[in-house]
Structures are given as structure tokens and as C-alpha cells.
Design a protein around this nucleic acid. Structure first.
Lengths: 338, 338
DNA sequence: CTGAAAGCGCTTACAG
DNA sequence: CTGAAAGCGCTTACAG
């Protein structure tokens, strides 16, 4: 009943040593083809299951990677993004023979600078931190000697590999898209002094404008949140541009509502684009043209880096930017067709 | 640099045996208090980290539990539920010294009856299946000898422990709630011949009616989906009841819209309640009174069962029903106040 | 092509 | 209170 069949059991059954079984099952050299076949078949029949713990013990590697997600990202609007990222991580890691162990970092543990239990128990070979952690915790984490990569955030000191989304070129592409559709009066919605990602998105928008010789018009820049990041009602400018680039879908949704309340229709009277491709992009009517963060690609980078690290190539690459993809929906009017 | 400090290293440092170190670090008997303290302190100083692989090897347990989620639940509307469930699982398991390894079961692997890689590699001591898998795969899975529990679905043969939400009593409570608010003409929205959970919810609604001597009126039963489960437009009955129990929030959302389109206001002209407490409950205007599935409690049951099983108590309990909680919001009018 | 020996880091009886 | 010995299941040199 107990399926504790070991290599030794197989070995005894056909009168060879367990070394030969190991070689055969791992397709290593030094065993005749027929013996190999015979062993593999017998292993199947006997219900043999490989014991990865033994290998781990021998190699000093667990083949597990801890994936740390701060509690505040595990619910609400960011939930979908992080779950998707986690799934890709888990699958991609598995393709390399590694397994992800998720660890939701509670606010309490973050404050108290408590390292994950998996670390103390030596259950993991490395950590992927998914989502920004606070500076003190970051420093604590950097003090331990284990491979790690940051996903979707970075540390300004740039001494840990980080994979982040390319906010700058995402907004740049999106603005270009508007311009190619004949728009030249394009506003921006977002508090430029709030977060680094809003700044980058604004700057990408600005670069597109510059490249097309369009002057930045302060009058059509709309603030969307106070200094604490709390969203506030949007105030439309006196004269409406033909389009707005919003720093995120949620705010784009709010802008569309504001426009509609004041009798404007989107995109007939004014086009609106968002950023993130989250739930707000599809619950808005019309659905938003936006840029989808390329989670899969970001994860691929992160996993590739991690695998290299656990295999000893521990050189730091720094920040890797991954560009998103424009998702075209119904919130942009093509002015050229007129 | 390498933090491969072992118990032996600590032992050598203070001239005792590694057995003593093991006992001290695990707070076992047979070491004087002062020696224990000294050892613990030294372990800290030397940056010792426990090697859980070694214990696993010795005990023949991995302290990992595989958590299998079919791919189709990993996105869309069910995503939020499953991610939350996974987080609770992960945390609850950890509290018992176990770790969850997620495995998204792809459609392809499900069809091909491929067991998870973690199984073949002996990386897990048991499996928690989160979300319905198809019958063939179910049979395949039941053929292997490893502890398992089903979460949020069950097998009709009832030979594997399963934790499910109590649809019957959830709908029963909710209908009672309407009746306590003075409603007596209460319709139901859902295809009774579609899924087992809709049936149970309908039956719970019916029981509440029966208990209050209210006759079931076929005329106010609305179908919501075709035989393939595809949602379809709702047809309002000639004469509107004062309230509707919907089989899920999504359909309740759709009902509210339909009512509003036809000039009725919710809950003034008609009250509406949903089920699930998912995203639709809060994006509906007015927000829906509904029943929230008690994920945390379900997970607690599942983990407790699993821990028992991996510790050898492998008796089957069968189905465990966990009741949800009513979440009162703004879609029910109190008729009593009139 | 095949195998004896050693070892990965711990824990569990058992002996002192 | 302390420790020598054996063993968990595998793999890696090394020898034949």
C-alpha cells in the first residue's frame, strides 16, 4: 500500500545496484539501452516515484523559490494583476524544474521586519518579490545572502535585479497612436508630483508631443489626486482638447463619466485613453483603448534571471523595462476619416 | 560567505555533538538550559539556517501540499474567489508548518489525464483540488494513493472529503431576510435545470417560502440561461413581484439593469438579491444585498482535514457544507416601514 | 557497462 | 545531561 518504492527496491528486484537504477532513470550514460528500458518499465510497474528531497539534500538546493506578495496587493484592484503574475511565475518556474511557494507578507510582518518563514527554514533557494515593499523591509531583505529579484518595482540603489513595466514608452506609444489618428490637441490626466510611474507616463506622453512638434499646453493638464494619492473629482478645462491620455484606466473611467455628465459623448466629442488594461478598461462605456502590461514577458525575464542566479551566475543586471502592448477598443475617434 | 552553516559546525565550535545542537534548537529535553541558550545564541551569530530538507528526508515527508486549480477558474469572474482561497490556503497551511505549491491544471493536461509534476517528483504530501475538475480526471486522480481533499466541489460518490458552500441554506437565509422585510411575492431567477448549485439555491428559496406558507408561483420564475449555460436576456413577468432572489450576482446585476430600462427603480419598485458577493455585487447600482461565500472558513476546514490526513488519520468524512453570510446593502426595500 | 563507498544534514532510538 | 551510530534516498566521483 505505501508507495515507498525506492531505487534500492527496484535494484534488488533485478539484481543490479541502485547506482544503475539512478543512471537509467535519469537517462545518464553508462547503462545499456536494454537495461535502461527494463528498469524504466519496472519502475512504472512498481509505482516508483522519484524522491526529490534526496536530490535536494545531496545538492543543497530545494528547487523552491519563494514568491513574496505584500498583503496590500493581494486584494482590490491590483488583485487580478498579481494573481495573473503569480500564475505565470508558477508555470514558468515549473518549466525549469522549480516550484513557487507563495508568501503573503502581512503589514505586521513588514513593519516588524520579519523574514518569511520559508527563509528561516531553508525551504527556498531564492526570492521573487512581487510588488513594492517598504524601504525598511527592503533593507532588511537586502541584508540576507540569497538570490532575489524584484518584480513590478525597483529599488533606487539599483543593486538588485528588477523587472518593471515601461511606463515611459507605453504612454509614448499610446500618444503616438492618438496622433496617428489625427489628434493634435491632447490633454493629460494625472498628478505629476504623485508617483514615479505617473511621472514616467507623463514624460512619455510629452516626448510624443515633442517629436510631433506639438506644444505642451498646461491648460489641458488635469490633476486627478491629492498629495496623498487620494483620487478627487476631475475638473474639465475651459476648452476641451480632442483627446486625453489618462495615467490609468480607473481615472480614464472617471474622466469618461465626467465628460458624459457634462453632455459630451466619448469618443465623438472627445477621445480618452487609459493605462493598465485592468477591470476599469472594460466596465467603461465605451470600452477603453489602453496599454496592457505585458505580465507574461515580465515574468519570463524574472524567472530567467532567478534561474541563472540559483545556478551561481550571480551578476546584477539592474532594471529591466518591459514594454506593454496597446489594446485598441472604442474610446478613440479617428479624425482622419472625416 | 556561503551560509552553509550546519549543526555540526556549531557543535564543533563549542565542542559538543550535533545531537545536542539538534535537541537544543528544537527545544527537546536532555540539554541543560544554559547550554540550550548558549547554542541558540551561537546559532544566530553564525547565521545558521535550519535545513528542512534533511528532516524531510528523514521523515519521508515534504511538508508541501499541492494546490491544483483548473485553468478555467484562473481568470475571469471566478479569479478573485480562487485567488483569495489560495491565499488563505497558503497562510493556513503555513501556520501548520506546511507550504502550498500551486499548480494550474491546463485544459490539455486535464484531457490527457496528466498528473501534476509535483506528484511524480514526490514534492508534495497531499493535494487540495480547488475547483471542479472533469470526471475522467477525477477518476485518474482518485486512482493514486495520496491524501486529497476537494474544495468548492464534490464527487457524487462521496469517497473523497470535500468542502463546499452551503447553497441551500444560503438562499434559504436570504429569502427569509426578504420575508422579514415584509415581502411575500418573491420571484426567483435562474435555470433550474442547469447546474446543481442553482438547483440547491432554488430549493433553499423554496423551503423558505414553504415555511412561511407562501405558494410557489411559476409565473414569477425567470429563466436566465440556455441549456449550455450561456446567459440570455431576462424576460420580466407580466405582474412584478415585490422582490427577486437571483441565483448569482451577475444575473442580479442584469436583472437590475433590465428593471431600470423598463422604468422600474430598485429597490423602490422591486427588491433584488444576489448570491456570491463578487464584483457584480458592488458595481451594480444600487449595490446588491447578497450572500458572501465564507472562503476563510471553507479553507480552514480543508486545511484541518488535510493536516490530519498527512499525519495518518485517513478516514473519510465526506461532504462538509459551510454556510455563507448575508451581506446587507442597498437593493432591498423594507416594506414593513410603510 | 556496472557497482562499492561516501556524503548531503538532520533525527531517532539507544547507551552511557 | 550528553553522544556514537544508523539511516532517510539519492548522486557523485572513482574503481573495476
Amino acid at each position: 500500500m505505501k508507495s515507498n518504492v525506492t531505487m534500492k527496491d527496484i535494484a534488488n528486484k533485478i539484481g543490479v545496484s541502485s547506482v544503475t537504477i539512478s543512471k537509467a532513470l535519469n537517462d545518464k550514460e553508462g547503462v545499456s539501452e536494454e537495461l535502461k528500458e527494463k528498469i524504466k518499465q519496472l519502475a512504472d510497474e512498481m509505482g516508483y516515484r522519484y524522491n526529490s528531497m534526496a536530490r535536494s539534500m545531496k545538492e543543497g538546493k530545494t528547487y523552491n523559490i519563494g514568491i513574496v506578495i505584500p498583503e496590500r496587493f493581494s486584494g482590490g484592484i491590483s488583485q487580478s494583476f498579481y494573481f495573473e503574475a503569480y500564475q505565470y511565475l508558477s508555470a514558468k518556474l515549473e518549466a525549469h524544474g522549480y516550484y513557487g511557494i507563495m508568501n503573503v507578507l502581512t503589514g505586521v510582518d513588514e513593519e516588524a521586519l520579519n523574514l518569511p518563514r520559508v527563509y528561516k527554514e531553508g525551504k527556498v533557494d531564492g526570492f521573487i518579490f512581487l510588488g513594492q515593499i517598504n524601504q525598511n523591509y527592503l533593507n532588511r531583505v537586502k541584508s540576507i545572502n540569497i538570490p532575489m529579484v524584484f518584480l513590478d518595482f525597483y529599488d533606487e540603489h539599483d543593486d538588485i535585479d528588477a523587472i518593471i513595466t515601461d511606463n515611459f514608452y507605453g504612454a509614448y506609444d499610446l500618444t503616438n497612436h492618438l496622433i496617428h489618428n489625427g489628434h493634435s490637441e491632447i490633454g493629460f490626466v494625472g498628478n505629476l508630483y504623485s508617483t514615479s510611474s505617473i511621472q514616467d507616463r507623463f514624460l512619455g506622453y510629452y516626448k510624443s508631443l515633442l517629436e510631433h512638434n506639438i506644444e505642451l499646453d498646461q491648460a489641458i493638464l488635469i490633476n486627478d489626486r491629492d498629495s496623498k494619492g487620494i483620487l478627487m473629482p476631475l475638473t474639465l478645462p475651459k476648452r476641451l482638447p480632442t483627446a486625453f491620455v489618462c495615467n490609468c484606466d480607473q481615472v480614464a473611467n472617471s474622466l469618461v463619466k465626467t465628460l458624459q455628465e457634462q453632455g459630451y459623448s466619448v469618443p465623438q466629442d472627445c477621445s480618452v485613453v487609459g493605462f493598465d488594461n485592468d477591470i476599469y478598461a472594460t466596465i467603461t462605456d465605451p470600452q477603453l483603448t489602453t496599454v496592457a502590461i505585458d505580465i507574461e514577458n515580465m515574468v519570463n525575464h524574472a524567472v530567467r534571471l532567478m534561474i541563472k542566479k540559483v545556478n551561481g551566475q550571480n551578476k546584477v543586471i539592474g532594471r529591466t523595462l518591459v514594454k506593454g502592448k496597446i489594446v485598441k477598443r472604442d474610446s478613440v475617434k479617428n479624425l482622419q476619416k472625416l
